[in-house]
Structures are given as C-alpha cells and as structure tokens.
Design a binder for these strands. Sequence first.
DNA 1: AGAGTGGGCCTTTTT
DNA 2: GGCCCACTCT
Length: 694
Amino acid sequence: MPQESASAQQLVPQEPNALRRYALKSAQPRRGLVDFDSELNDEQRAVALSPQGPTLVIAGAGSGKTRTLTYRVARLIEEGVAPDRILLLTFTNKAAREMMARVAALCRIDGRKLVGGTFHHVAHGLLRDHGSRLGYGDRFGLLDREDVKELMASATADLGLGVGQRRFPRADVLVDLYSTAVNTQRPIADVLARERPQFGALEEEILRVARRFAERKTQMNAMDFDDLLMNWKRLLVEVPQTCQALQGKFDAILVDEYQDTNLLQGEIVDRMAALHRNALVVGDDAQSIYSFRGAHFENILAFPERYPDCRQFKLTVNYRSTPQILALANHSIACNARQFPKQLSACREDGVLPALVPLRDVHQQAEFVAQRILELREEGIPLRETAVLYRAHHHAMELQMELARRGIPFYVRAGVRFFEQAHIKDVLAHLRFVQNPLDELSFKRVVKLAPGIGAASADALWSRLEIWAGQGRDPRMELSRAELDQLVPPKARPGLAKLRGALGRLSAPSMRSQPSEMVRFVLDEAGYREALKIRYSNFQAREDDVRQLADYALQAESLEQLLGDLSLLDSLEGEDVIEGSDPDERLVLSSVHQAKGLEWRAVFLVWLADGRFPSAPALKDEGGEEEERRLFYVAVTRARDELYLCYPLMHEEQDRARVLMKPSRFLDELPTRPHPPYEKWAIEVESAPPRLTE
DNA sequence: AGAGTGGGCCTTTTT
DNA sequence: GGCCCACTCT
C-alpha cells in the first residue's frame, strides 16, 4: 500500500535562501552577538563556553544536546575560528543541515561554509579531492546496498562457488560479514569465527570471495559505504602528504551521536584531530543502538582514557518529557549494567502516567491505537504531534490497514527508500554509467531494459567493452561499434541500438553539465517511458517520480555531486512514503531506530511482546539484551506528554494455531512498588470504528 | 536465451 | 508476505 503511492513522495530541493540573506547582511562574524546567558542553562553554557581541547559531553535524552552543540559552534566562530575550518560530524545529513542553519542564523554567517554531514558524506567529499592517491579515478562511483549485494553474488559466481554447492552463505550474509569486518576493524576470519561459526569450514572460500569482491569494486572504480570510511582512514595512515593536508584542514572537530560511532569512525576522529586535539564529542551511552552496524559504545566509555586531559561535561536536565515518562525511562535503563552513571531529572510539570495496554490481538491493538489517536486529536494533540513506534517495520502492517480504513493520514519513515526504487535506479544507472564508464552494474542494468536482452547478452556486451577499456579506450565512445550487434539476438538489436545511441548522446559534455536534462532525456527520448509502461501497472506514478527526480537534479552543481548526494542521502526528504494529502496533519509511523533524535507529544509503542521487542534474534548477540533495552529507552524518551505501551496477548502465527504472547521483559521488570510507573488499561473497542471527521 | 510461474524458505534495526 | 531458485514455455 504505502509503497504503491510513489507519486506522493516529495523531493524537497535543498533549501534555503535564508542563508544567503544572512551572508549578504554581514560577511564578517561579529563578536558578542550571541546571548549565551539567557539561551542556555548552566550545564549547557559550561559546554558552549569551555576552552578548546579534547572534550566529552554526556548528554541525556532531551537535554538540549543539539542546542548546546549549536551554541558551541557559535562560540568557536566568535573566538575567531573560521567557519570552513570547523568540521561537524552528525548522524544524519539532515541533522547537520539543521545545525548549520541555526549556527548561520545565530552568527550571521553563511552556514554553507561549515563543513558538516555524516561520516560517509564528509568522506565522499574528501575522497573526491584525494581519492586518486589511493588509485581511484577522479570520478569513482558509489555502490548502494543492492549494488553491493549483486556484486558479492557475482564475485561468488566468478569463483564457481555457491551454485548448488554445499551450503555456501548467501550474498547478503557475505556482505554483512565483510561490512562488520571493516567497521569493527577485525580480520574477516575473526568475524566469521565469532559470528557465523556454522560457516567456519568455508573460511578459505569466503576469504577468496571477499578478495574477488574487492577486486571487482576496484575494477569498477567504485566504492561502497564501508570503503568511504576505510579509504578516509587510509588517506590518514598511508599517504603522509594527504594526512598532513587533512589534519591541517580543520581547527575544530565536533561529533554528534558519538555513542553510535564504530571503531573505524572513532579512529578517524582521533587521527583527524591528532595535531590540535580539538575534538568535542557528544553522546549518550544509554542511547547506543547501532551495534549491529559495528557501533562501539566503548568509544564513548573509553574517551577519557584516550584523552586523559579531556574536559568532561554532563547534560542531565530533561526538557522534553513529563516526570512520569522520565521516571519510567529511568527505571528501565537502570536495569543495564554497563553505562555512565547519571541521573536525568525532569523539569516539566506533572503529567499523566504512561498507559500499559494489553490487547487481545494485533487487530485489537491496531483498533485501539487508531481510536485513541482520534480521541487525542479531539483533546488537542494533532496528528503531526503523534507517532507510533515499533521494533521492526512489519509490526505496523495491521495498523497501516486500520489507519487507511479510517481515513487517518499517516506516513511511514521507511520502507523502500525513494532512491532505491527500481525505476529511480534504472534512470540513475544511465547517469552513473556516463559518469563512471567502468560501472559494470549500471551498464548492464541499462542494456537489460531493451526487450530481448537478459543477463547473458548483457554479460557478453560488457565483456567486449571491458576488453576495449583494458586497451585504454573509453567504453562510452565505443558503443556505436557495429560488432556489438553480433553479440545479441537479432530481435534485440533495434532496442539496443536506441539505448546505445542514448548513452552516446548522454555522454556529450554539453549534456553532462545538465544532470536534470539528462534525466528528462532518459525518460522522454531514450525510451524509458515506454519501458515503464510495459513493466509496471502504476507507470504513471513512477513517471511522476522520475520527473520529480529531474526537478531535484536542477539544483545540482554537477553530475558527480548529484550522484554522490543521492547515494548518501539519509533520513527524511524524499524518503518518506506519504498517505493522505495535508502534509501538516499526518501521523508518523517509524521504527525506533529512525525515531532517534525526534520527539512527539504522544507516542504509541506497539508490539511490546517478548521476542518482538526485545527481538528474539537480537537477544542472541552478546550484549543484545542491553542494546534492546537501550532501544526501549530511546523509544520511551521520544514522548513529551503521553506514552502508550501496547502489546497483543494472542497471536496467530502464519500457518498454525494461536500463540500466547508474553509481555516484553522490559515491562515485567519495571518495579511495582510502591507504585508501578504506569497505569494499566483494560480495553473494550467499539464495533463500529469512527472515521476521521474534519 | 528470455520471460513467466510455482514452491520452499526466512522474517531486525541502516549510513 | 517477499525473495530465491528451479522449472517450463516461447
């Protein structure tokens, strides 16, 4: 359902002209403009005004971390640090943009001068300039999740492994293995032995596949997400000249969400700051929820050991939640052994107790949530101030249907990302091949659009181009050669000819300088519109998506920049699937992971059944239970005024009988004396659900 | 060689 | 419900 509504997705061009205005008003930073006294509390001000040097800030949930960081940057600028010599590493690009805009507003500078974004985003920028030092061509491509998986599968096939062979790990398992090894900086064999012992006997083969995988990426002149980080580090370790340049590039480094950095990212920060040691890291160990991605929350615990002279601060006043919600959160997280001890205190007025709501089954759960949301709306909490959070996306299936039935508009922060949808990837494959003619995956994707061309023909075509490329010829220029026709069946030739011609025209320099025009050309003139019609029933929606992509591309400065931005685009813009029309009046559905850093007046947590949240597979990992509890803590602390903890008592499994569910251990373990930190509700749901009325 | 169909499998979180 | 593989038809 939500996945179908492709056309409703919005692509918001990167704002904002407001920044430009500030830049015109006053090009010079002015001192004393920022009011640190009235805008910050004592704890926050201490951080903002502290002397430069290694600094650790433990910032509890809702304690004004972003605000503090923003004022810290403002302070640095006041002290004379040039904005373009400040590096701001955040968890999402959106967080960086917001913070930069706020700094810009505070200091009346051009916010774009600050260097900020995710580790991956910043790495991409640096590697554009210095990647050639590591042997990459100047226009290396970026591989997304799907590309990487495909490449891993094909590396496996190259070595003749996996086909019918005794249980060889699937491509996504191999990718996982490889990625964990990079992000935790351990040898693959080590990760294999610890985390996938069942494949231990295949170690040698798996290592060969990993080597082949790396080779293929090099051949393609492409990097994946992990390579971006790895190569950033390599620049710092293996290329002394570049290392010097990078270390001298910034005078101050600030890292947000430091608890979710992994070993590799931690090392990058240390090395980037090796000369001036002016690194300020902010995080909350209690909110570390990305260990599956290699996040290493010892980074934050051990920071004082790596920087014995560092200053340490804590932000312990919670501005977000009522004392009742905070009490429940504090009780829960107290069950974790490994953490920085800290006491979060509430500063808001008393509110209502969180509600603990056992429901008969998932259907009643969905009905309850939908109905209660409507009641809250009557009571003055608008839909946009309400969120439903869950451990795994499929936990919201029944709810999505129920909301649709009642006409309650919602959007899901997740699902298929806009840029990972097939039709968007098809169009971008044209552009990617033009940008990086060694991009085998993109070339094959494009030619397979021609009717009559499948994997075998695409392979044949590419092998020929690859031979020419090996002789130093540019594959883009050789596309018109007649002999390519001999490699495909006759009936495929007209379609292929059209695509070859299109790729040739797209490669012209005049085209390449206009990425938006390239998108339009692919759709209207290269025949992609027709391909869409044949392949999809909702081709109109998909065509609209492509036109939106063209609009988005208008603001790109170059093809490189556009493709880089698109691959690394994180949360929000363009990624949301929208149901319903009024963008200001929609309920949010989100995984807890994606809800990080956000807040709502009312939060519903669903599927709080043991085995779902905490999730059974996660519990198998070492430290899994504590990580799940931190996840629960993150979820609970998203709520400002009202919190509903829901779980179904009964569940019908796929094929079999009903199963009795246990409430989450995170609920059971909460103290009941003198009073439980919640109020238990008993629910009866009306048989005729009310619809949303305006 | 490609495209379409049916059966067996697993199902977490994401830059 | 979705993904992968094997099988069959064109």
